[in-house]
Simulated scan of single mutants.
Amino acid sequence: MRLTVGRDQSDIEKIRDFAEWLLDIGEGKLGGINDGETVIDILINDPHDPIGSLIKFVYPSILEKYNNTSYFQERAILAPKNEVVQEINNHLLLKFLGDEVEYLSSDSICQSEFVHDQFDANLYSPDVLNDLKVSGLPNYKLVLKIGVPVMLLRNIDQKNGLCNGTKLQVISFGKRVIEAHIISGTNIGNRTFIPRMSLTPSEKKILSNSEEDSFHWLYVLQ
C-alpha cells in the first residue's frame, strides 16, 4: 500500500504482481517438485561483517548519491526484529559525514497518574523507562545526522503527505523540531517540520508511561 502511493497505474500493477509473488513463495506455490534441496543466491558475501556486506549491496556509493532523491526512493532494507533494525541503522549512520545530533524521550512519569495509588519512584527509574521497547514507539534515544533518510511512524498530516510510512530526508535540527523534505508519496520535494509530541503506547500494561515525549520517527533507513 505504501509503495503504490503517488505511482501511475503501470507501476501499481507491477507492485501488486510482486506482492502476490512474495505471497506465493511463502505459501509454497512456486517452483516444481524437488527433493527438498535448492540453490539460494545470498547477497551477504562477508561472514565476518554480514550487515556491512548487505549495506554495501543495497546502498552502493552512498556518500556520492545520498543527495539524489530517487536513490533512497528505490532502496530499503527489511528486518524481522527491531533489534536488527537498530543495528543496521547504527552501521549506516557511521557512513554519513557530519556531527551526530541526539534526541532523548522523557525519562520520568507524571505522578498524577497515581492519585489513588502509592507512587514508588524506584519502580519507574530512568533506567527502567529508557530500557522499554514498545511496539509503535521509537526507542528512548534517537541519533541523526544531516542528510539521513527517516520514516514516519504516525499519520501526522495526511493532506500534506505526512502519513505512516512516509520517507523524509533530514535537512536541519532544532531543539524541539526537525526540518526535512519529503522523498516519497504525493508531496515529494516539499519541506516540512516535525515537532516533538506525546505518544501513547497501545499496550495497556505500560500505560503508566503514556506521556512519553518523543519524535514520530522510525530510526534511519528502516
Rank of each mutant, 00 (worst) to 15 (best):
S202F: 12
L30N: 03
Y103M: 02
K14D: 05
G147E: 03
L144P: 08
A19H: 10
K175N: 13
G26V: 07
G98W: 06
F72I: 07
D107S: 12
L63G: 04
S53D: 00
Q111K: 15
L137R: 01
D99M: 05
D131G: 12
L22W: 11
I194D: 00
L218P: 09
L168E: 03
H116T: 15
D35H: 10
Q222I: 12
T186P: 07
F114N: 00
H91C: 07
G98Y: 05
A76S: 10
V101N: 11
Q86Y: 15
L63Y: 09
C110L: 15
A19L: 14
I182F: 01
P149R: 03
P60C: 13
N164S: 06
L162W: 04
Q158P: 04
I206T: 08
I55E: 00
A180L: 04
V128A: 08
L23D: 13
K159G: 08
G28P: 04
E87Y: 09
R7T: 13
E87N: 06
N67E: 10
Y140T: 06
T69Y: 05
L144F: 09
K141L: 07
N68G: 09
N89W: 15
V177G: 07
L94F: 15
N164I: 07
D8Q: 12
I88Y: 04
E203Q: 15
L168S: 00
H48C: 11
I88R: 01
E87A: 11
I12G: 04
V101K: 11
L92R: 13
N160M: 03
N45W: 04
D49K: 08
S70N: 06
D99S: 09
S10H: 15
H48E: 13
L22P: 08
V150E: 00
L123Y: 10
P138Y: 01
L218I: 14
L54K: 01
I12E: 01
Q158L: 08
V39Q: 05
L92F: 15
H181K: 10
Y66P: 05
E37N: 12
A19E: 13
V170H: 09
L3M: 12
I51R: 03
Q222Y: 12
